[in-house]
């Protein structure tokens, strides 16, 4: 193999900058390509039987059921904080009657899908990356391969499908908890009438808002397990490699959630 960069220490500085830029670009393009191919392989395996239903059920339990408590808790407190701040702001212009629709629409369209995805990333996504990372460094993923079995079928596909199944459900639960959290503050503590809170919400929020939240949560449900399993699958060596992969998975997932949230919010009605 020819090493074209032999003697690079003697190259002039601009040539080394160009080489570094080229190396960086190649690495970036290669990473994006690998990332896309990883998803392509996983999607293809969804349609090529056998689908591992027991593993899928396990992942639904892991991603969905185990995140339930934190989703209800954070949903309720998000709704309470939102109810308080929206009530105090609307009170300045004498429109506190609109606290219900403001809380409802903000939760259903934006905060529900985004915050649910972020919390589930921190809870289940990070665990998924760490689990696959440890399997990688202890050669368990290699063991699948040398048994002539595709590890993606067992480890990645169930996780992505579980995300797509559970994220919309968790988001709906977060929304309901948030709406009742807002109710607790706006109605029971600050004196808005219950009829006004829910009546105005019903008048202003419609199915379009619910569907925007649904499509976003569906998208995040595929995105988060994709990023987290990819990072675990391609983690570096040792404990440091697993730790770095887990951090990268959480950070990248959260950044992509916010970016996708903006673009989906722009595209969806």
């Amino acid at each position: 193999m020819t090493d074209w960069s032999a003697g690079r220490e003697t190259w002039p500085l601009p040539a080394r900058w160009v080489e570094a830029l080229g190396e960086g670009t190649l690495y970036l393009v290669e990473s994006i390509g690998r990332f896309g191919r990883f998803l392509g392989q996983a999607v293809a395996l969804v349609f090529i039987p056998p689908l591992k239903f027991r593993r899928l059920a396990g992942r639904v339990y892991f991603v969905g059921f185990k995140s339930l408590t934190i989703v209800i808790l954070t949903g309720a407190f998000t709704g309470m904080a939102l109810g308080l701040q929206v009530f105090l702001t609307l009170q300045r212009v004498g429109s506190e009657a609109f606290v219900g629709p403001a809380v409802g629409i903000a939760l259903v369209r934006e905060l529900g899908p985004v915050l649910t995805a972020v919390f589930v990333t921190g809870l289940a996504g990070s665990a998924l990356t760490a689990e696959l990372g440890i399997m990688r460094i202890t050669e368990q993923i290699d063991a699948f391969m040398v048994m002539a079995l595709n590890p993606m079928r067992y480890l990645v596909v169930p996780a992505i499908l579980a995300g797509i199944i559970t994220f919309p459900m968790l988001t709906a639960i977060f929304d309901v908890a948030g709406i009742y959290g807002g109710y607790l503050v706006a109605v029971m503590l600050l004196g808005t009438s219950p009829g006004t809170y829910f009546g105005q919400m019903q008048a202003f929020a419609d199915m379009t808002d619910v569907m925007v939240g649904f499509w976003k949560s569906l998208c995040f449900g595929g995105l988060v397990p994709w990023v987290c399993t990819y990072k675990g699958f391609h983690c570096g060596h040792g404990a440091e490699g697993v730790s770095r992969a887990t951090t990268e998975a959480v950070v990248l997932s959260c950044v992509l959630i916010l970016i996708f949230n903006y673009f989906l919010g722009s595209v969806l009605p």
């Binding site: 202890t138 050669e139 368990q140 290699d142 063991a143 391969m145 040398v146 048994m147 002539a148 079995l149």
Partner: peptide, 26 residues
């Protein structure tokens, strides 16, 4: 690879499965 058997350095046993299930898995 169907003709292969491999014993990895650390064993590479699936830690989510029992000993029986590890051996039964292939």
């Amino acid at each position: 690879r169907r003709r292969y058997g491999v014993v990895f350095q650390g064993g590479a046993l699936f830690d989510s499965m029992s000993v029986f299930d590890n051996v039964a898995f292939p």
